[in-house]
Write a protein that binds this DNA or RNA. Structure first.
Lengths: 336, 336
DNA sequence: CTGTTAGCGCATTCAC
DNA sequence: GTGAATGCGCTAACAG
């Protein structure tokens, strides 16, 4: 491996000078600079990022903790996060995170952490706070009320679900199902709370809201509906899912049992992943602006990185309604 | 930041001993070990991975170069790669790669590189060969015949496509379309070659094979078909796509133009991503075993890591046919 | 403008 | 069994 020493020797200068030209520090005489540049070129010199990191105490790496990359929603955000991170000079270390992997997480050498539908344990948050490692989240974490609150970027689910509930009411539904994850630590928990609130705000009673647990995944959601449908008459007429993957599973199961969508059941997803437009019928959903969320997350993170630990506010983006065939279109739609 | 020094002082031993207990080296007296452990605990000591890497010349990080994470196929493999990498003690640095990002790639501190539908330039391969950084690929790279060949794991596309071609012939098609990327550097290029070969092997002439370019993505494939369909009568009756994302785009466009699948056109995808089972009709495809591929890729990589630069062979897995509604089922199916 | 030098935190050789 | 000392490759005072 060719090091800074080799370059210095070859160029006939000291090691410091090599450092200077690499980092554009102290005015180096143009002529000297050229010599150094030439030596670097000849030797195929590449600075050792590890050594640099040790010295500067920065790795230029960010950890991204995802929940389940099999969900195109998360994969899409990761895609955009990587673009944004690159623009800020960071690389991304990606991990599928679970609480029992905290120790591995702590051993990562990263300058910051981005949560993607994840929540860290209080103890872990404390650990990173001590180490001044900033953390931001995409989608509101379940423990937003921690002693070490994590700023997040999410859409206004209450508003979006409010629109959906109004729409469903306008369609004559007065008995609504919300399918969510089931685990209180899931990122979908916040959406569940928002939907419950929306129900209340629209004047429905809590008895008119039913919760179903689809585990956040296609297969679980499918099975959940199958079990209900197999018992005989399908009791629900309107289902809102906390993510699209479950909505797709629900649709699949409903079709399998000959339950018409939107004829017998109105179905709505959340997130608006590509797949929702390709099913039959296509699934109406709430669009989550992924590129924008990724962009804002990196802005937040860099603010934290620069301003020390000053408290930084979260960012609420706007979700938007995407009308599709899984719910009948009303002439004077509430969502024009 | 608490370092090994702090621990040593607190435990009343030398820094070396701390190192010993951390790495289970030299028999440390149990009693001393306990003292050290206690000190580490009290101080919340965490070893600095950067310093360790500098010393050991290993980062325990692998780079994964993906093409387009918006393709669930790649995201799925990434998911499995991360699991396998974790089992081998590696973290994953993920990058969307393009040839103009070589410089950034070279600056990564990684022990190895995994290509996901990517091919590196010859110069870049040489760079990593000089540095003894092993590289493996999932799906055969286009420059497999390089001076620094990259071992890969892929399925036997020739065999899989051979089956499809026989099936299409049995359905009476004698005029077949293969939709591929168009860029010779695309990972889909190898599949294109395989399909051409399959056509020849089954006794069809090259005039009976038409190539369409769908850019590897949903939107491009969709548009490609739209442009053809808009000119009037749709001239093709059988379309094999080099990946599922394009197949889904094709189906979407065909439906939009009222072209029946499988009535008027038989459609087959490649890879078998979840989405293919949710369209209407569902799209027949060739299953690519993602978990197994990820597993084999890490085995390959670790062999390279251990055995120096000894040449290592590639791994060919078996693809499997997935019959679905986009192609009529034959009574005595050729695939069982 | 350039050279000398002192660490960054760790693993390891060599004494004791 | 344990400690002292060296160096991984780099940056940044500081001195000249």
């Amino acid at each position: 491996m060719v090091t800074r020493n080799d370059v210095a020797r070859k160029a006939g200068v000291s090691v410091a000078v090599v450092s200077y030209v690499m980092n554009n520090k102290n005015n180096v005489k143009p002529e000297t600079r050229q010599k150094v540049l030439k030596a670097m070129e000849d030797l195929h010199y590449m600075p050792n990022p590890t050594a640099r990191s040790l010295k500067t105490q920065k790795t230029n790496q960010l950890a991204v903790l995802v929940n389940y990359l099999g969900n195109p929603f998360e994969a899409g955000i990761l895609l955009h996060l990587e673009e944004e991170a690159r623009a800020w000079g960071f690389s991304l270390v990606f991990q599928s995170y679970r609480h029992d992997r905290d120790e591995a997480l702590k051993q990562l050498a990263v300058d910051g952490i981005i949560l993607l539908g994840q929540s860290l344990r209080e103890e872990t948050l404390r650990f990173f706070a001590r180490r001044n490692t900033p953390i931001v989240s995409i989608t509101k974490p379940t423990n937003a009320e921690s002693a070490h609150p994590v700023p997040y970027v999410d859409i206004d689910w209450l508003e979006s679900y409010g629109k959906v509930v109004r729409l469903l009411i306008a369609h004559g539904h007065d008995d609504i199902v919300f399918m969510t994850h089931g685990d209180e630590n899931s990122a979908l928990h916040h959406r569940t709370e928002a939907f419950c609130l929306a129900i209340a705000e629209q004047g429905l009673s809590e008895h008119q809201l039913h919760l179903l647990y689809g585990g956040g995944r296609y297969e679980n959601a499918r099975q959940c509906i199958n079990e209900i449908a197999e018992t005989g008459r399908f009791p629900y007429t309107a289902i809102q899912c906390a993510n699209d993957l479950m909505a797709i599973g629900v649709l699949s199961a409903l079709k399998e049992h000959g339950i018409g969508v939107p004829g017998q059941v109105s179905l709505v997803g959340s997130e608006n992943i590509l797949m929702t437009s390709e099913t039959e019928p296509a699934i109406a959903s709430i669009h989550f602006p992924r590129a924008e969320a990724a962009k804002q997350a990196l802005i937040l993170l860099n603010q934290l990185l620069q301003s020390g630990d000053k408290a930084i506010g979260s960012i609420i983006l706007e979700g938007s309604w995407v009308q599709r065939g899984s719910i009948k279109h009303l002439p004077n739609d509430l969502h024009e």
